[in-house]
Design a protein around this nucleic acid. Structure first.
Lengths: 221, 221
DNA sequence: AGGGTGGGTTTGTGATCACAGCATAGGCCA
DNA sequence: TGGCCTATGCTGTGATCACAAACCCACCCT
């Protein structure tokens, strides 16, 4: 039975031996980076078959993702990726603004030149993803930009909450970036970097708020 | 085997037939309202025995609580209620301030007289709990005060995040209210109600922030 | 007497199975 | 020909079991 293992997931990050954790990480990345469309259904046996595990670890990883709001659970127990209402999207955008403005503000006094260089280089990668029309790559790199900045805030609980919001917005973000077709240079990211260099806290808060809010605004139909 | 069911949990809210959900709800309430001390260990078979279920639902509810940050998972898989560091407590307090100030601000334009009456009556119950030295009852009623207000904000995702923070602080809050021995009338709650009546948004924000922050400040050793 | 080490016990992990609910697709009847 | 109804598969739920690792405590060696 163990021959049927089909590791179609990413071959990286196999340091943990735990089966449910491996499944969880793979699914989480898929959802957060928009690899799954809203409304898609996931079945226990299907997940188990794909990752070569039994129903038990599949169920654990699915329920963990449900607990984090990444998947929604119907009354009959069926698990699907959620289709967010406009009110929910606006709320999550407000949450992003609230949390990420605070995180960036806390990161500001700790932002050295090495961090700014790193952010700049991530920005270059984002531009590449945009020109390649790679939606998933764009989302992943964009979030990496934010995570790199917020890691300096030394606020793990707050960062975890922000990532939970990203996770909830994942499937919807794909729909967004699949829709917008203009080659959008990360203008707000440049404003963020400039404010970091200048030590300008109000400017930084404004830039982060704009960056977080403007993309989601297009999504509200 | 099913005879060993000992429903020591609350007899209410048994509308759901799902076993793991029943266990989850009971444990969540215990943790959030400070019924379990920090550092206590929970075992799968122990939970199962107590609720008269097998290991499967016990495991699901425990892992869900771990996913929500209510319990911490050691490297060997043992589940305990977390002992929070001072930095973590300060971070969670900041998170409470951030989220709950926003929630109260959104609830303000929707706050009618009926809500204010209800808040006042909850406040009376809080005073009773204080005089009875009932720590768990105090925490539960205090959170009910906040939840009642925030429900008017019509922001379910934001409220869910706030409740997650309460959950993480639960075991620690018990340690706090077990320590403070003064009969503390809910002064800040009266300020909140006054600001609601007057439609005074800056005052409301300040009162909520004070109420949320001051209690946790005592806790930082 | 103290510290390391052995075994017995307890723990989480994952697989498998029986079962009940549901959804769908096909057939059946008017 | 159209609408209803049943049957079959597929789904999640929960119980049980085998197994390996961790833990604990007593015992033994130095």
């Amino acid at each position: 039975m163990s021959i049927s293992a089909k590791p179609t997931a990413s071959p990286s990050s196999d340091t943990t031996a735990s089966a449910h954790d491996r499944v969880y990480r793979a699914l989480r990345a898929r959802i957060m980076y928009g690899d799954i469309a809203p409304g898609e259904a996931l079945t226990l046996r299907g997940i188990g078959r794909e990752f070569g595990v039994s129903m038990t670890p599949a169920r654990e990883s699915l329920r963990r993702l449900v607990a984090e709001g990444a998947l929604s659970l119907s009354s009959s127990g069926r698990v699907t990726t959620p289709e967010l209402s406009n009110e929910r999207i606006e709320e999550l955008a407000a949450l992003r603004a609230l949390l990420e403005v605070e995180l960036s503000s806390r990161a500001l006094p700790r932002a050295h030149m090495a961090l700014i260089d790193r952010l700049h280089s991530i920005n270059v990668t984002i531009a590449e993803m945009v020109s390649k029309r790679d939606a998933v790559g764009y989302i992943r790199t964009n979030l990496e930009f934010h995570r790199t900045l917020y890691l300096r805030a030394q606020a793990p609980a707050m960062l975890a909450m922000a990532e939970t919001v990203w996770l909830q917005l994942g499937p919807t973000m794909r729909a967004l970036y699949g829709r917008l077709r203009r080659t959008d240079p990360p203008q707000n990211h440049r404003l963020i970097i400039a404010a970091l260099k200048a030590g300008d806290e109000p400017g930084l808060r404004l830039a982060v708020r704009s960056d977080v809010t403007q993309g989601l605004r297009l999504l509200v139909v």
